[in-house]
Amino acid sequence: MDLPGPIHDILVVFFGSVLILGGLGVVLLTNPIFSAFSLGLVLVCISLFYILSNSYFVAAAQLLIYVGAINVLIIFAVMFMNGSEYSNDSYFWTIGDGVTSLVCTSILFSLITIIPDTSWYGIFWTTRSSQIMEQDLISNIQQIGIHLSTDFYLPFELISIILLVSLIGAITMARQ
């Protein structure tokens, strides 16, 4: 979305802070139903990031599929399996958790130091100069539809077959 600069930055900071807190909540909350709702909050924030980066169709697909289907499925699974095992879930800190948090924070800080060192704008100018400056007559969603029905036709059909097979497999495993 082509917002003016300060509003865009304020929105990015706000959604980013909500996303950071939600991501911590997914991992660290002990009750899994709170963790599932926190996951929903994170997914909604990610779809708002997609809107900020001009990808409206992916934002709508994110809202529909992740928040509307996967998150609801996870919440139903948590509700069905919410037996007595979650109540006595004393979350104690083992040494494996400490080692894993050390490794993950080292991954995080190494990637954060790598990202500003990369010359993104060199790549940006080379790709921009090699692109054909065609007219911007068709919108992004039409562009996605054209690509899905011409270049990516075989992966599109394969992904539909994968969805059908996984649906049948899930029903077969769940009914028994």
Partner: peptide, 18 residues
């Protein structure tokens, strides 16, 4: 990213069924 979303939907359905 749309393909990744579709694969994630399939993965969530299979995983929760398991």
């Amino acid at each position: 990213s749309i393909f990744v979303i579709a694969v994630a939907a399939a993965e969530a359905a299979i995983g929760l069924a398991i």
